[in-house]
């Protein structure tokens, strides 16, 4: 192989290497944009709503500077944070119970548990902002569609109206249904303590419906009736007209000696104890 041929081959190799290097340096062709445009949109539109715990964690730094830190550490180092979290997770009733624990420490205003109550209902307001193009409703979560349709800045496009047609808003209807059920429970006699909120009232009436009747009030259990039929007036009927024995007994008391005895005890004071009655009965002796 001659040196000329070798030189040509080398030049060809250099060209090939140079072309490949140029091809690497050239930016990506414009085929990617649709992929790029479709992929970030759901990421921006459908953020998962933060859990209550996360919100509490996120808001805690805001409240932290208000609270005097050294006093918190000295009084109750671990107490405020877990108490507030438990109250938010479980029920608003626990908030009321947890309040004294928080106020007992000087950090009373720091947690502000009342602010945390509407956490699950708050829509992610920041989510619709990146929306620049109409998005298919199937790619958008229900919560964000609701927020998007409620938001005043949202464009009145088909994407904004679609949720109203296909996904009806559960908010007002659900509230009205809950109101109807609570009203029905009140009509049925269920009582709700005044310290409970709407959610608790709904819970109480649900229990009442589960039971099938109004919740019993304390002290309504009737006492067993006294099976006592002692009488002082033998001529009269007993208090219960359904007693066949008393009817039969009183209807067949025609004898004169008994009538005389009836008249006599009426004038005397009635004996108070069974023992005295028994002694009088023991004094009876058969005639002859």
């Amino acid at each position: 192989m001659s040196s000329d041929v070798i030189a040509r081959l080398e030049s060809l190799l250099d060209r090939v290497i140079a072309r490949r290097a140029v091809a690497r340096l050239v930016p990506a062709p414009p085929v990617a944009p649709p992929v790029v445009a479709s992929s970030p949109a759901p990421r921006a539109i459908t953020p998962e709503p933060p859990r209550p715990e996360a919100r509490v964690e996120a808001r805690r730094p805001e409240a932290a500077p208000v609270a005097p830190a050294p006093v918190v550490i000295e009084a109750a180092p671990e107490a405020p944070a877990p108490v507030v979290i438990e109250a938010v997770v479980e029920a608003p009733v626990a908030l009321v119970e947890a309040a004294p624990v928080v106020t007992a420490a000087p950090v009373a205003e720091a947690p502000k548990p009342v602010v945390i109550e509407p956490v699950p209902e708050e829509p992610a307001v920041e989510a619709p902002k990146p929306l620049t193009a109409p998005v298919e409703p199937t790619l958008v979560s229900r919560r964000n569609l609701e927020a998007h349709s409620v938001a005043p800045a949202a464009p009145p496009s088909a994407a904004a109206e679609a949720p109203k047609a296909s996904l009806p808003l559960p908010g007002p209807a659900k509230i009205s249904r809950a109101d109807d059920r609570i009203a029905a429970s009140f009509a049925a006699g269920a009582s709700v303590s005044p310290g409970l909120g709407d959610d608790d009232a709904d819970h109480v009436e649900t229990l009442a419906f589960r039971v099938g009747r109004a919740l019993p009030k304390p002290g309504q259990v009737p006492a067993p009736p006294l099976p006592v039929t002692t009488r002082d007036e033998p001529g009269e009927r007993r208090s219960d007209p359904g007693e066949r024995r008393s009817e039969r007994y009183t209807a067949s008391l025609p004898s004169a000696p008994i009538a005389a005895q009836i008249a006599e005890p009426a004038a005397r004071p009635a004996p108070a104890s069974l023992r005295s009655l028994l002694q009088r009965s023991l004094a009876l002796r058969p005639r002859g």
Partner: peptide
């Protein structure tokens, strides 16, 4: 007394009882 005896009898399935007085007869 009637209540106490009736309750004790009733707990055993023996019915109930009460007192009546006719003159001096109990």
């Amino acid at each position: 007394v009637a209540y106490s005896i009736a309750l004790a009898l009733g707990q055993r399935g023996f019915g109930t009882c009460g007192f009546e007085r006719f003159g001096d007869a109990l």
